[in-house]
Measured scan of single mutants.
Amino acid sequence: DDWEIHFNNITIRLHGVSEEQIEELKELIKNGAHEEELRKWAEEVNR
């Protein structure tokens, strides 16, 4: 699925990401992940 997530003036566009991966991302954000951590997560997902 395609997703677009907005938070802290950042837009993250995701393509072909599962519901499970979105839940992981929500947890990262909820736990106060920094932009660098989110980038690493996105790189892993996009492999």
Rank of each mutant, 00 (worst) to 15 (best):
D1S: 14
D1Q: 15
D1I: 15
D1W: 15
D2E: 15
D2N: 13
D2F: 13
D2I: 14
W3S: 03
W3Y: 13
E4M: 09
I5E: 04
I5C: 12
I5Y: 08
I5F: 14
I5A: 05
H6D: 05
F7G: 01
F7A: 03
F7M: 06
F7V: 12
F7S: 02
N8V: 08
N8H: 10
N8R: 09
N8L: 10
N8T: 05
N9C: 14
N9L: 06
I10N: 03
I10K: 05
I10P: 01
T11Y: 04
T11G: 05
T11Q: 01
T11H: 08
T11R: 04
I12N: 04
I12L: 04
I12R: 05
R13S: 11
R13A: 06
R13C: 13
L14C: 09
L14T: 03
L14H: 02
L14I: 10
L14N: 01
L14D: 01
L14P: 02
H15N: 08
H15A: 08
H15L: 09
H15F: 08
G16K: 15
G16V: 07
G16C: 11
V17S: 03
V17L: 12
V17R: 02
V17M: 11
S18T: 12
S18Q: 05
S18R: 07
E19S: 12
E19G: 10
E19L: 13
E19W: 12
E19R: 13
E20Q: 15
E20D: 11
Q21A: 11
Q21L: 13
Q21I: 14
Q21N: 06
Q21E: 07
Q21F: 08
Q21T: 11
I22G: 03
I22M: 09
I22A: 07
I22Q: 04
I22E: 02
I22R: 06
E23I: 11
E23P: 01
E23H: 12
E23G: 09
E23F: 10
E24L: 11
E24T: 08
E24I: 11
E24Y: 09
L25G: 01
L25P: 00
K26W: 14
K26S: 07
K26V: 14
K26T: 07
K26D: 03
K26C: 13
E27D: 10
E27Y: 05
E27W: 08
E27N: 13
E27F: 07
L28I: 05
L28D: 00
L28T: 00
I29F: 06
I29S: 01
I29P: 00
I29Y: 03
I29N: 00
I29M: 07
I29R: 01
K30T: 06
K30C: 09
K30G: 04
K30Y: 05
K30W: 05
N31E: 05
N31Y: 03
N31W: 03
G32M: 05
G32Y: 01
G32I: 01
A33K: 03
A33N: 03
A33Q: 01
A33L: 10
H34Q: 14
H34C: 12
H34T: 15
H34Y: 08
E35M: 07
E35R: 04
E35S: 07
E36W: 02
E36L: 05
E36S: 11
E36C: 08
E36Y: 02
E37I: 09
E37C: 07
L38Q: 00
L38M: 03
L38G: 00
R39T: 09
R39L: 15
R39D: 09
R39M: 15
R39V: 14
K40P: 00
K40S: 08
K40Y: 05
W41F: 09
A42C: 10
A42E: 12
A42N: 02
A42W: 14
A42K: 02
E43Y: 01
E43P: 00
E43F: 01
E44Q: 13
E44W: 00
E44Y: 02
V45G: 01
V45L: 11
V45A: 14
V45K: 07
V45H: 13
N46E: 09
N46H: 10
N46D: 07
N46C: 14
R47A: 15
R47Y: 04
